[in-house]
Design a protein around this nucleic acid. Structure first.
Lengths: 212, 212
DNA sequence: TCTTTATTGGCACCAACTGCCATTAAGCGC
DNA sequence: GCGCTTAATGGCAGTTGGTGCCAATAAAGA
């Protein structure tokens, strides 16, 4: 019984697909972020976000446990993208070189709107403490994904001090660079700003190694 | 008018001293943490904490903006201690060596109770998301202090990418090590556990430099 | 003592969530 | 098309974190 792919004599309405659910969350997220930027987090009520997205307040609260977690879907997009790049990092290449190769196609794939939205959120997380907290929590979750990749590369278990420190440091580098590029892109994003991001990361890595 | 030390023809009840206020906060903090550990954060109400510390709920909310920020005073103690050590880091010494020298007296100075309480909080921040968020926010504030020290050492402005990355990485190292030692000290703290902390940090720094 | 200012406590109030139940939507066999 | 079954939604009441406001008290100096 109850096998991996447990038997499915499905009847009745099927549960909505996972991607569908994510899409809904992302949509709510976009509306929320727009309102946050316009009026501030405190002045934006759950009801307002819900109705802006055309759903009842009750279902809004079913999609998000707190108001601030509305930023999560958008930010996850960014973090996931970075994790994917790191995951594809070939063993024989320097990280910086890999970034140079893998980063541009990734930027082309994403819609300009979403990039702008993500950077707007990052900018919002300064000044809006509640959002900053959500951002930091998310980053820490991403750190685990990073640790997984690094562990595999080093052939070490994931909960080694060494692996976790490297993941944490790398995550910190990305955070600083991201904050910086978000600030730089305050008034309109250009291709240069984004290419600059890669160079920021490269510079940051150099600064790190100089520390010893 | 309104000079640096502005004229003080004080009348009426003088405002309570700053350290007095901190003491009050710290007291509330201890009660809060005890209750959090016993029953969980969600099950502990502001009213409960307030009355445990012998003040009205209203004044409790005047000391803390949110329930979770109750952990702040205790955690600040730890972070401040580390910052002090870093601030006293002489230019000609390796960081690891400085830690070896400066760490022990610091541990002797702190009361065992407080050390235990701080580690208990850190342990709580796993599993209690709200507390984790508060913890991360606090760490980021500490990162700025760290950046200040590092900037002065390097003779660079504080908002340089290089300085901020180093501060972030160092903070990350401390975070991983702290989490680890808190976990290790789950059932009673010994002097060894704490000395171990220093060695954790040392090992973490080595792991970091190996990353390049 | 009286005056002045700081802190406290009590109460009403709002907004963030949650539980519960009726309603609607989406599949499937007929 | 029509039921049957299960998932998602919406509405409503209720709880709880947290704030604004005002009266009461505490701590000084005159």
């Amino acid at each position: 019984m109850t096998d991996v792919a447990t038997e499915k004599p499905r009847r009745g309405r099927p549960p909505v697909s996972d991607e569908q659910r994510q899409r809904q969350r992302l949509d709510l997220s976009r509306h929320a972020v727009r309102l946050f930027a316009e009026q501030g987090v405190a002045a934006t009520s759950g009801e307002q976000i819900a109705h802006a997205a055309g759903v009842s307040e009750r279902t809004f609260w079913r999609y998000f446990p707190h108001k601030e977690s509305c930023v999560e879907p958008l930010l996850t997009k960014m973090v996931d993208a970075f994790c994917a790049v790191v995951r594809a990092w070939p063993r024989e290449l320097e990280l910086i070189d890999h970034l140079r190769e893998a980063y541009s196609p990734l930027l082309d794939a994403a819609s300009d709107e979403d990039i702008e939205a993500v950077l707007a959120v990052v900018r919002l997380t300064h000044g809006e403490q509640a959002l900053r907290a959500a951002y930091l929590m998310l980053r820490e979750r991403a750190e685990d994904a990073l640790a997984e990749v690094l562990a595999e590369r080093a052939g070490l278990p994931q909960d080694t001090i060494e692996v976790r420190v490297q993941a944490a440091a790398m995550s910190a580098v990305l955070k600083v660079a991201t904050d910086d590029v978000a600030r730089a892109a305050a008034g309109g994003v250009t291709r240069d700003t984004l290419e600059g991001h890669r160079e920021q990361i490269a510079a940051a890595l150099r600064g790190l190694s100089r520390m010893l």
